[in-house]
Amino acid sequence: MLKKLLVLAVAVGAGAVFGYLFLSPDGDGIHDRVPGGPLVEIALPATLSDNAELGRSIYETACLSCHGPHAVGQDGVAPPLVHKIYEPSHHADESFQRAVSVGVQAHHWPFGDMPAVEGLTRADVALVTAYIRELQQANGIN
Protein backbone atom coordinates (compact mmCIF):
# COMPACT_ATOMS: atom_id res chain seq x y z
CA MET A 1 0.00 0.00 0.00
CA LEU A 2 2.82 2.40 0.89
CA LYS A 3 4.53 1.64 -2.39
CA LYS A 4 1.33 2.46 -4.31
CA LEU A 5 1.01 5.77 -2.45
CA LEU A 6 4.62 6.62 -3.24
CA VAL A 7 4.11 5.86 -6.93
CA LEU A 8 0.94 7.97 -6.92
CA ALA A 9 2.76 10.86 -5.21
CA VAL A 10 5.58 10.74 -7.77
CA ALA A 11 3.07 10.66 -10.63
CA VAL A 12 1.18 13.63 -9.22
CA GLY A 13 4.44 15.53 -8.75
CA ALA A 14 5.56 14.79 -12.30
CA GLY A 15 2.16 15.92 -13.56
CA ALA A 16 2.48 19.17 -11.63
CA VAL A 17 5.92 19.86 -13.12
CA PHE A 18 4.62 19.04 -16.60
CA GLY A 19 1.64 21.33 -16.08
CA TYR A 20 3.84 24.15 -14.85
CA LEU A 21 6.25 23.90 -17.78
CA PHE A 22 3.76 23.23 -20.55
CA LEU A 23 0.29 24.31 -19.56
CA SER A 24 0.58 27.21 -17.17
CA PRO A 25 -0.39 30.59 -18.58
CA ASP A 26 2.46 32.33 -16.73
CA GLY A 27 3.80 34.16 -19.72
CA ASP A 28 6.42 31.62 -20.71
CA GLY A 29 4.74 31.05 -24.09
CA ILE A 30 4.67 27.28 -23.80
CA HIS A 31 1.00 26.77 -23.01
CA ASP A 32 -0.37 27.40 -26.53
CA ARG A 33 1.62 24.82 -28.46
CA VAL A 34 1.10 23.69 -32.02
CA PRO A 35 2.65 20.33 -33.03
CA GLY A 36 6.00 21.09 -34.68
CA GLY A 37 5.54 24.77 -33.88
CA PRO A 38 7.63 27.05 -31.68
CA LEU A 39 7.45 26.55 -27.94
CA VAL A 40 8.15 30.16 -26.98
CA GLU A 41 7.73 33.56 -28.52
CA ILE A 42 10.78 35.79 -28.27
CA ALA A 43 11.93 39.28 -29.08
CA LEU A 44 14.93 39.45 -31.39
CA PRO A 45 17.76 41.84 -30.53
CA ALA A 46 18.14 44.83 -32.84
CA THR A 47 21.75 43.83 -33.53
CA LEU A 48 24.10 40.99 -32.71
CA SER A 49 27.77 41.13 -31.84
CA ASP A 50 30.18 39.82 -34.48
CA ASN A 51 30.64 36.56 -32.54
CA ALA A 52 26.89 36.08 -32.10
CA GLU A 53 26.35 36.73 -35.81
CA LEU A 54 28.87 33.99 -36.63
CA GLY A 55 27.14 31.79 -34.07
CA ARG A 56 23.77 32.45 -35.69
CA SER A 57 25.12 31.17 -38.99
CA ILE A 58 26.48 28.00 -37.36
CA TYR A 59 23.26 27.57 -35.38
CA GLU A 60 21.19 27.74 -38.57
CA THR A 61 23.31 24.98 -40.11
CA ALA A 62 23.69 22.65 -37.14
CA CYS A 63 20.92 23.37 -34.61
CA LEU A 64 17.89 24.93 -36.30
CA SER A 65 16.42 21.67 -37.59
CA CYS A 66 15.78 20.56 -34.00
CA HIS A 67 15.71 23.70 -31.83
CA GLY A 68 13.84 25.82 -34.38
CA PRO A 69 14.52 29.29 -35.69
CA HIS A 70 16.14 31.60 -33.13
CA ALA A 71 16.24 28.74 -30.57
CA VAL A 72 12.49 28.86 -29.85
CA GLY A 73 12.22 25.05 -29.77
CA GLN A 74 9.82 22.84 -31.68
CA ASP A 75 6.86 21.08 -30.15
CA GLY A 76 7.53 17.36 -30.13
CA VAL A 77 11.12 17.80 -31.33
CA ALA A 78 13.42 19.81 -29.05
CA PRO A 79 13.24 22.44 -26.30
CA PRO A 80 13.67 26.18 -26.62
CA LEU A 81 17.10 27.42 -25.63
CA VAL A 82 15.72 30.90 -25.04
CA HIS A 83 14.09 29.84 -21.80
CA LYS A 84 14.73 30.46 -18.11
CA ILE A 85 15.87 26.84 -17.71
CA TYR A 86 18.96 27.65 -19.80
CA GLU A 87 19.92 30.87 -18.00
CA PRO A 88 23.67 31.06 -17.39
CA SER A 89 23.35 30.45 -13.64
CA HIS A 90 21.59 27.12 -14.29
CA HIS A 91 23.25 25.97 -17.52
CA ALA A 92 26.72 27.45 -17.85
CA ASP A 93 28.35 27.76 -21.27
CA GLU A 94 30.18 24.49 -20.68
CA SER A 95 26.86 22.64 -20.54
CA PHE A 96 26.29 23.61 -24.18
CA GLN A 97 29.79 22.35 -25.02
CA ARG A 98 29.10 19.01 -23.33
CA ALA A 99 25.66 18.63 -24.87
CA VAL A 100 27.12 19.05 -28.35
CA SER A 101 30.21 16.90 -27.79
CA VAL A 102 28.73 13.95 -25.89
CA GLY A 103 24.97 14.48 -26.00
CA VAL A 104 22.76 14.85 -22.96
CA GLN A 105 20.27 12.64 -21.19
CA ALA A 106 16.76 14.11 -21.04
CA HIS A 107 16.15 15.79 -17.70
CA HIS A 108 14.09 18.98 -18.08
CA TRP A 109 11.90 18.21 -21.07
CA PRO A 110 10.00 15.21 -22.48
CA PHE A 111 11.81 15.18 -25.84
CA GLY A 112 14.17 12.31 -25.15
CA ASP A 113 17.93 12.36 -25.12
CA MET A 114 19.92 14.79 -27.25
CA PRO A 115 22.55 13.03 -29.35
CA ALA A 116 26.03 14.47 -29.82
CA VAL A 117 26.33 16.80 -32.79
CA GLU A 118 29.07 15.79 -35.20
CA GLY A 119 31.33 18.27 -36.96
CA LEU A 120 31.30 21.18 -34.51
CA THR A 121 34.44 22.37 -32.77
CA ARG A 122 34.58 23.92 -29.31
CA ALA A 123 35.07 27.29 -31.03
CA ASP A 124 31.92 26.71 -33.11
CA VAL A 125 29.91 25.89 -29.99
CA ALA A 126 31.28 28.97 -28.21
CA LEU A 127 30.00 31.12 -31.08
CA VAL A 128 26.60 29.40 -31.04
CA THR A 129 26.47 29.91 -27.29
CA ALA A 130 27.22 33.63 -27.79
CA TYR A 131 24.25 33.80 -30.16
CA ILE A 132 21.96 31.99 -27.70
CA ARG A 133 23.12 34.18 -24.80
CA GLU A 134 22.37 37.36 -26.76
CA LEU A 135 18.91 36.04 -27.63
CA GLN A 136 18.39 35.23 -23.96
CA GLN A 137 19.52 38.68 -22.85
CA ALA A 138 17.14 40.32 -25.32
CA ASN A 139 14.40 38.36 -23.56
CA GLY A 140 15.36 39.16 -19.98
CA ILE A 141 17.20 35.89 -19.33
CA ASN A 142 20.49 36.78 -17.70
Rank of each mutant, 00 (worst) to 15 (best):
E94K: 15
S89Q: 01
D93S: 13
Y131P: 04
I42F: 05
H83K: 05
P115S: 12
G140I: 01
A9D: 00
G76A: 11
E87G: 01
H67T: 05
D50F: 08
V72H: 06
G140W: 01
N139T: 00
I132K: 08
G73W: 03
R98A: 12
L54V: 15
D93Q: 09
G13H: 03
I30Q: 09
Q136V: 03
V125A: 05
A78P: 02
V117P: 05
I58Q: 06
A71I: 04
D113Y: 06
V117Y: 10
H108C: 02
T61A: 12
G13K: 02
G29D: 08
S65F: 06
L2I: 09
E53H: 06
P69K: 11
V17H: 01
T129C: 10
T121C: 06
T47W: 00
V72M: 13
Q74C: 02
G112V: 05
H91A: 14
L39M: 14
A130D: 15
G13M: 07
D75N: 11
L81Q: 02
G37A: 12
H91T: 06
H108F: 14
G27N: 04
F96Y: 08
G19S: 05
A116R: 07
S49E: 02
V100E: 05
S24N: 13
A106T: 08
R33Y: 11
S49R: 01
A62S: 15
A106F: 09
G19A: 11
A126I: 04
E87N: 02
R33C: 03
V17E: 00
D28M: 07
T129F: 05
G15D: 07
A92S: 13
D50M: 03
T129L: 06
D50K: 12
E53N: 07
S65L: 10
M1E: 12
S49F: 00
A123W: 06
A9L: 10
Q97I: 15
A46Y: 01
G140D: 01
I132W: 02
A43K: 10
E41D: 09
A46H: 03
N142V: 00
V7I: 15
H31E: 11
P80Y: 02
V117C: 13
D26N: 15
V82Q: 06
L2P: 04
A52M: 01
R56S: 03
F96I: 08
A46P: 01
V128M: 11
R133V: 13
E60L: 05
P69R: 08
W109F: 15
G15L: 03
H70K: 13
I141P: 14
C63P: 03
G103F: 14
L21F: 14
